[in-house]
Design a protein around this nucleic acid. Structure first.
Lengths: 134, 134, 134, 134
DNA sequence: GTGGTCTAGACCACT
DNA sequence: GTGGTCTAGACCACG
């Protein structure tokens, strides 16, 4: 899995890292049970401090997206990923709301907006790509 | 216009302020040319620092959503709001992408996601929302 | 509030800190809404690194015991402390179980054990001590 | 005796092992003089490192709960288990204190807490709680 | 070699 | 001056 960070961004590095990993899991390139690189190796790979990677991993663990396994190291959650909890839906709304408001302000149609969302969804989702299982 | 701030949120106050004003404009409760409270009065109204309000106003002006005149005070952009520039669409994607990725990870359908977006759009948009304000 | 740390203990400093603060809240010496010292001042007071204090505060915030307020700094949760959630009861059992098992192994009576628990409860609890005189 | 380990837990494996064995002795499923599996066989049975089992056994021996003979292997302490030493009671208090404090903070009654402790005691204890009532 | 913890020192964003 | 983030380097517990 390739990690791309923007060191100039105002988005914290550990957040970018989390986003990339979440996207990897959502997109199927990281499968449940699969091992992630160790804190140290990932840190040196992408050229950041190990604490930064550690923070990303710790938060992902708290959200239930990965496990920190005593023997296998860090792995993508194998015991079923968290579902659509009310907390998540609330958080999702809070994140969506300002983006949608600004889109409306700029005169974007509902259908155009939905089209954008659909495009991104299919772009990230694994069912769009190459993984059609027999 | 009522401003609701969450002092415990991890979202900076000036950002919350911007979001609320943007939503006000998008929803039609703030109309182009309409005056906004002065930095001083708004700051004392909602109990935050002058600098905080100032920062929000300055950034909104930079985005072209409001105008700041030394004499007339602060008004919602009367000369046509900015449209769907490529820069905005790029920013929008960057904001949408992690939210959508996480929604996929949690097993949300595309149609359910679109439904959420539609719901929020109509909730914010003036055409469905009712303006019972004088 | 007096913080007592044992630097030789195998219990991490940030955990000791959390325990002391929890005990302070439970015992009534820290009241909801009351301000806690800033990360930096507490760190220098007790002679540890600010990151250590920060970790304790962050975890206490995640548990809902304190708030990190943008204006007031760090305060004891004023909006009602978390109650007896199933998660807490499960965690409590996992913590209690080995202690009780070892007590049984060492031949402690149930009544003696309950007496110990009662003694500690009343020792920590505010209603036992200085606030209500018999 | 069945050993159940949680590889994702933040509790070290050797500690989990110790807890399980202590609980086994306390509950009567492991009787004084009874043989425990060798380090090697237990390690391979539960799929952990030799060092891990060894550490658990060594610590249990230090506490006086088991004996390790070069020839006869590992046996549950046959010469009388350690009693309620002052050291143990002190350790017990240190373990109990934060749990009780957090329970108080969450608004748990003393009677409910005692009920929990009693429930766990009787659950672990072999005599099912009809023994030492004078 | 792994993650966990702690320290020291630095810059920045926010208020 | 506050908390948030990041870096660098170190030691330890664990397996």
């Amino acid at each position: 899995m390739i990690i791309q960070l923007d060191m100039q961004s105002d988005v914290p590095i550990y957040t970018q890292l989390m986003n990339q990993i979440v996207e990897g899991i959502a997109g199927g390139s990281l499968k449940p049970g699969e091992a992630l690189p160790s804190v140290r190796s990932l840190a040196s790979d992408i050229g950041v401090n190990l604490h930064t990677v550690n923070k990303a991993y710790t938060l992902l663990k708290q959200e239930g997206y990965i496990q920190i396994h005593r023997q296998k190291g860090v792995v993508v959650q194998p015991d079923g990923l968290p579902g659509l909890t009310p907390e998540f839906l609330a958080k999702q709304q809070e994140q969506l709301r300002p983006v949608i408001a600004e889109s409306i302000l700029r005169g974007m149609n509902l259908s155009d907006l939905l089209e954008q969302v659909k495009k991104l969804y299919e772009q990230i989702s694994p069912s769009s790509g190459k993984e059609s299982m027999p």
